[in-house]
Write a protein that binds this DNA or RNA. Structure first.
Length: 681
RNA sequence: GCCGUUGUAGCUCAGCUGGUAGAGCAGCUGAUUCGUAAUCAGCAGGUCAGCGGUUCAAGUCCGCUCAACGGCUCCA
């Protein structure tokens, strides 16, 4: 008896009853059979050993398909788990999923069992042995806890493993081991002596897993909850070929060179030191970039009728009680603490002197803006009122989370608050989403992810307020047709938010922009406006930041451009390189002309040869290198090359400056406006 | 905060099983006056993160603290 199988191209094929995906592949071509990783039957991934039924829709996945790599890595995680069980007696397996660039397996190490990166060599060797043996991955479904498969599994890992037991328990709650129609299967995969609970599917055998490498160790919590057991997360990666693995490792090396912490040192932008953990020291060049980022934002704010303000760094604790920060944000705040000298003994310092009026350093700018709003009466004619501040905030961060410029303890937010009527909320949010994307576009940042975060456990305000705020954000997102991910319970304590996430050179995602709706704080601070009806109403407040923090955005931009900043951001835009000391005077004159034109220029007066100066300036990623020697001095000209080596040739300073792309913030902003207008036409 | 790793000159890194520190680059001095990615020579630079312990002797072994790195959790 033959059965008929439907293939993706619309054709159908007859094969003998009882045939597997592998048999089907073989009947098409032996090459395909060899290349088959898994099959997809009626939209469901299955092993190639899966037995087909009459009428099945079947697609055969080979290593060319992107999903094949995930299967490979999932199998590699099992291979690693098998090796770890042998090499680290006592280790217990929990879960082992695939990640974007590899996989990990979370291992529980009971008291007395330890494992470090020093064990990688042994484990990898064992994995290589297992891969060479090439045993099959065999799927076994356990019909009950009493079945042979289940017993075999328990004997190896399940006996005292509460983690796997919890997973099986969850499956049972869904009906596993029952006779129900839709009961989930409890499947195990055997590879030689190793057996593990797993949904599958897997590559046909361990021979596929030769190009696997352990990457790093990390801590993780069971089910991502800090209250649960601490697990050891072992990361690895796997590829179909040696070349792909090598290319991946090379890519990681290259990404490290783009790391803003590395570039910060090389380009003399900033540094950190132990005396001030998480507080960056910005050097002159870093400050130049930083200020230009801020200036660029100021232009954007100005054209959208924001009013810039400055509010105090420190407010009384009572203000933070009013805002709710004291109750909800205490752990992240810096408080002032007074010290006094003993009246009778000046050497004796009283450390815990009582503060008459305890103060706290601001972790957010909102209370200050609320106070400015409240200072006088407002009419509905003024709304929406957009108050902006390049606000320096301080936030205590747990020691393990600081990370270069991406996660610091003091940073400037390009912060603003929109005070508006409830009717204006949606329009304001739509304006903001468009605004933010325009800014990211100006930096050529296209990989921006949106997330909508809803009410967290610790929060202020009524259910009704939260619902209104969340739906306002959703509506604005949907109106713009933007894709977004919902993070339940991740909102700020005063309101839900839309976050804009951007990736760093190593693919880690960082929150930059944010838009938050807040019905609570205006009420807590007693804000009002007089409506058209002559009555007083409470305005709604939107918190928003586009860069998020200048520090973080600086880091993102540094990595995005690998330190080769666009001309308008480059700390040094033109470097003058005299061919020898004889031309230092002429170099100085040329530099003065650039300087007059508002170009950031430096001269290399060192007693080095031209080749050395070119190399030094190139490594500093200075956009334009200007060579001056006898010929240039004689003709009152310059000789220009671009940082990537392209020769621009001989010209005069005046002609060159004239032809330069926008090199100041106002010029850049003007050219971007022109582009937007052109695009609209 | 948790898990793992690390901390040696301004920077990047050597320093084996304990016997009182080295290189390259950067810096300084001198020679050289040079044409598109490193001219030559010399000099100077370190309480080996900090504190405590073991030892005749600690950069090296042990403990604690701090910081950094990779993750987890948390956030801009």
């Amino acid at each position: 008896m033959d059965i008929s199988i439907n293939l993706p191209d619309g054709s159908s094929r007859s094969i003998p009853e009882g045939s597997s995906v592998f048999d089907l592949a073989k009947s098409i071509s032996p090459g395909l059979a060899k290349a088959a990783v898994v099959g997809v039957v009626d939209g469901q991934q299955v092993d190639v050993s899966h037995t087909l039924q009459d009428g099945d829709e079947v697609r055969i996945v080979t290593k060319k398909d992107p999903e094949a790599l995930e299967v490979l890595r999932h199998s590699a995680a099992h291979l690693m788990a098998a090796a770890i069980l042998e090499e680290v007696p006592g280790a217990q397996l929990t879960i082992g999923p695939v990640t974007e660039d590899g996989f990990y397996y979370d291992i529980y190490l009971p008291e007395g069992v330890s494992m470090g990166e020093g064990d990688f060599g042994r484990i990898e060797k064992k994995m290589a042995q297992l891969a060479k043996k090439g045993q099959r991955f065999e799927r076994c479904v356990a019909p009950s806890r009493q079945s042979d498969v289940f017993r075999e599994y328990v004997a190896i890992d399940g006996g005292a493993n509460k983690f796997k037991e919890e997973i099986i328990g969850d499956l049972e709650k869904l009906g596993a081991f029952s006779d129900a129609e839709d009961a989930p299967e409890v499947s195990f995969y055997k590879m030689g002596d190793f057996i593990d609970l797993c949904r599958g599917p897997h590559v046909p055998n361990a021979k596929w897993l030769k190009h696997t490498k352990l990457m790093k160790l990390a801590g993780a919590y069971w089910r991502a909850n800090a209250a649960n057991e601490q697990l050891l997360r072992v990361y690895g990666t796997a590829f179909f070929s040696k070349e792909d693995l090598a290319a991946h490792l090379h890519m990681l090396e290259e990404a490290k060179k783009r790391d803003h912490r590395v570039l910060g040192e090389q380009l003399d932008l900033f540094h950190f030191q132990e005396d001030a953990p998480g507080f960056p020291f910005l050097h002159p060049k870093g400050t130049s970039v930083y200020n230009n980022l801020m200036e660029f934002m100021r232009v954007q704010l100005h054209s959208r009728s924001y009013k810039e303000v400055r509010t105090p760094l420190i407010l009384s604790e009572s203000a933070w009680h009013t805002s709710g920060h004291y109750d909800n944000y205490l752990e992240n705040m810096f408080f002032t603490k007074r010290k006094r000298r003993d009246k009778d003994d000046a050497q004796n310092i009283i450390d815990n002197a009582d503060e008459d009026r305890p103060m706290a350093v601001k972790p957010m700018n909102c209370p200050g803006h609320l106070m400015i709003y409240k200072h006088r009466m407002h009419s509905h004619h003024e709304l929406p009122l957009r108050i902006a501040e390049m606000g320096l905030v301080h936030r205590r961060e747990a020691s393990g989370v600081r990370h270069g410029m991406f996660r610091v303890q003091a940073f400037v937010q390009d912060d603003a608050h929109h005070f508006c009527t409830p009717e204006q909320i949606e329009g304001e949010i739509q304006l903001l989403i468009k605004f933010f994307f325009e800014v990211y576009g100006a930096f050529d940042l296209s990989d921006v992810r949106l997330e909508l975060s809803t009410r967290p456990e610790k929060s202020i305000g009524s259910d009704e307020m939260w619902e209104k705020a969340e739906s306002a954000l959703k509506k604005a997102l949907d109106a713009g047709g933007r894709e977004y991910q919902v993070n339940e319970g991740d909102g700020a304590f005063y309101g839900p938010k839309i976050d804009f996430h951007i990736r760093d050179s190593l693919g880690r995602s960082w929150q930059c922009g944010t838009i938050q709706v807040d019905f609570s704080m205006p009420e807590r601070f007693g804000l009002e406006y007089v409506g058209a009806d002559g009555a007083r109403h409470t305005p709604v407040m939107l918190h928003r930041a586009c860069y998020g923090s200048i520090e973080r955005f600086f880091g993102i931009v540094t990595e995005h451009f690998a330190g080769a900043f666009p001309l308008w951001l480059a700390p040094v835009q033109v470097k003058i390189l005299p061919v020898s000391e004889k031309f230092n005077d002429y170099a100085g004159k040329v530099a003065a002309k650039f300087d007059d034109a508002g170009v950031r220029v430096e001269v290399d007066y060192s007693d080095e040869r031209l080749g050395y100066k070119i190399r030094a300036a190139t490594m500093q990623k200075v956009p334009y290198l200007v060579v001056v020697g006898q010929k240039e001095a004689d003709g009152d000209i310059i000789n220009v090359r671009w940082r990537d080596g392209d020769d621009i040739g001989e010209t005069t300073v005046e002609a060159f400056v004239e032809g330069m792309p926008p090199y100041t913030v106002p010029a850049l902003a003007a050219s971007l406006r022109e582009q937007t207008v052109e695009a609209a036409e």
